[in-house]
Amino acid sequence: MKSFAYARAADLETAVQLLSKTPNAKLLGGGTNLVDLMRENIEQPDALVDVTGLPLDRIQERPDGGLVIGATVRNTAVAVHPVVRDRYPLLAQAIVFGASGQIRNMATVAGNLMQRTRCLYFYDHAARCNKRAPGAGCDAIGGFNRMHAILGASDSCIATHPSDMCVALAALNAKVKVVGPNGERTIAFEDFHRLPEDTPHIETDLQPGELITGIEIPPLGFARRSLYRKIRDRASYAFALVSVAAALEVDNGKVRNIRLALGGVAHKPWRATEAERVLAGANAGPESFRQAAEAELAPARGLAHNDFKIELAKRTIVGVLGELAGG
């Protein structure tokens, strides 16, 4: 690990200033991803700005029934929060499906959004990676790509976003609140993470000097009936091959409301808008669930080792929706 200067920010203003004025500075929250990447020399910041002392560690209920979750709230605190468990069970569930108890106690909400891919070639200095060294090439494409993207990948990068929590946030239409040298702004969740295209090293919409202050979750009554399902290579403590976050409201056998997002399939949490479109008003049954899944995965492309994920994703969508529909 390279040496770095360390500063603890006591307030937001200082944090923004430190971040924008210090060359090659990074924000340090729980450290669960950043410290690992620094130890691997993948991240080599010259300075760390510790944000864990900022007053962003609260979960607030909004008058409309929604929530605002501070950036430095630990993952566990979100999952155990009674309102989250009651109104947004898929969010609580996504969190407890991620990582381990210890990591969830450390990891912050903002850090979860900022975590980087687990691509084996991203982690290996001896390999070519366009994220680590833009323009170098991608060794994952012809290598081990079992964990890699089937949707939205490019010739530059086939990495996936590893978060579980973000899949639920995508389904919930969350908003990311950020502050930077030019003040505050709010980013729609689906715009926050980017597809790789030919700049896979740019992973989010955050601008230089900006930091996340919190997540807004709008009210969504029918999310009380929601699920997160994660398929992985062992029973627990592994990254998703495919995951599905869904909320479903059925009225008279018809889909009245649907939210669907996929994890483990793309460079970003994948909001399944095509499937949602197909399902709107459709029969809440296995045939239309399968049709929706087929529609969503129609543009999917498999590689040598991850082809199975296309069918796996479809089946998992059908299974989760079936369960929510009470079938």
Binding site: Y6, V35, T76, I103
Partner: peptide, 29 residues
């Protein structure tokens, strides 16, 4: 593992279990 993947370094911090390998001590004043 020193990479947050095995749990052997688990300690309690303010009563909560955490991984000491991924915690920078400088942060824990």
């Amino acid at each position: 593992c020193n990479q947050g993947a095995c749990g052997a370094c688990t300690v309690l911090m303010d009563g909560q279990r955490v991984l000491s390998c991924l915690s920078l001590a400088v942060q824990l004043e």
